[in-house]
């Protein structure tokens, strides 16, 4: 399009408006408008107004939606490479994960989906996922034996829970609260802000911070729409996205701290287990990817970064 024309991009995602990642995307919309002097604007549709994460990525491919925020776990449906984020204990620490995402490997992954008509813009921190249970505290992997743990629809998530010894039970997110309340499942796993905003802490009294997976959110733009933007517009968008990612890490850290405080106030016992036995248990799972060239090369590259 020509420079005199104003462009509006639609961004849809599944989070509520008090979520730190939503706030970061609102900041991106504001920065984009400021940088371009109103030439390039972004309208944000929160709370699954335009569909679930999986559906929004499909709309991005179709081209009726410009931008969406999606968990790297959901990206597994679209490209194998993102499975690497779903692997347990793939990162040595939070700093390690930031180093990977900010570095060459992260950039490679973002651009790896261009042949899938999706272009990654940036990563948002989504913390680490840990187990929360109704009445059985998890101190070691052995405590998971026989427990029915709700999993998301994801092959790597199912494999991960089975590797740790739990019974992976599929329950849709919408039915999870009542399923926990009535005891259909014994527990679930998620990051602290999700435990807090879903109110699952009202039912689950133990939160065991084993931090088995660190699955970031990814901001993606439709390749069809990206290619129609001028180079200048692409720059504005990328810069606004990068700036929002910096802010998001700060907001996320705050929200994580606050969520943990709130759930503890509500009577949840937070447990800090020794991670070593958990890490040991999942090693065969990481090795099982030896035959998958793409994923295994990413595993090796990530492990090589200090």
């Amino acid at each position: 399009s020509t420079h005199s024309e104003k462009t509006e991009l639609k961004l849809a995602h599944g989070l509520p408006t008090d979520h730190p990642v939503h706030k970061a995307m609102m900041f991106m919309a504001q920065r984009c408008s400021e940088l371009s002097d109103g030439q390039l604007t972004i309208e944000v549709y929160p709370a699954e107004q335009l569909g679930s994460e999986q559906q929004c990525v499909e709309l991005v491919q179709i081209g009726s939606l410009a931008i969406t925020k999606v968990s790297a776990a959901v990206m597994e449906s679209f490209t194998d490479a993102y499975k690497v984020f779903g692997l347990p204990y793939i990162f040595k620490s939070k700093e390690h994960s930031f180093k990977i995402m900010d570095g060459e490997i992260g950039k490679d992954l973002l651009l790896s989906t261009e042949d899938k008509w999706i272009r990654g813009l940036t990563y948002y921190d989504a913390g680490s996922r840990s187990f929360y249970t109704i009445d059985k505290p998890i101190h070691t992997p052995d405590d998971l034996a026989g427990l029915k743990i709700r999993v998301m629809r994801s092959i790597t998530a199912v494999e991960m829970i089975r590797a740790l010894g739990g019974s992976a039970t599929p329950i849709s997110w919408g039915e999870l609260y009542t399923a926990l309340q009535s005891g259909v499942v014994d527990g679930a796993e998620n990051n602290p802000p999700s435990l807090y905003t879903s109110r699952h802490y009202e039912v689950c009294k133990y939160y065991s911070l084993d931090e088995h997976t660190t699955i970031p959110d990814v901001l993606v733009v439709s390749k069809i729409i990206w290619d129609k933007l001028s180079e200048q517009e692409q720059e504005w968008l990328q810069q606004a996205a990068d700036e929002s990612a910096v802010l998001e890490r700060k907001l996320w850290a705050e929200s994580e701290k606050e969520s943990l405080e709130e759930v503890q106030k509500a009577g949840v016992e937070v447990i800090y287990p020794d991670k070593a036995p958990f890490i040991e248990k999942v090693q065969p799972l990481l090795e099982s990817y030896k035959d998958n060239e793409v994923i295994y090369s990413y595993i090796k590259r990530i492990q090589a970064v200090k």
Partner: peptide
């Protein structure tokens, strides 16, 4: 919305909308 994205989006909404456990 342009013709093809519009038709495709509508059909995608129709199918995925039914993919609900409830």
């Amino acid at each position: 919305i342009d013709m093809i994205p519009a038709l495709t989006t509508f059909s995608q909404r129709m199918a995925t909308g039914l993919d609900s456990f409830a």
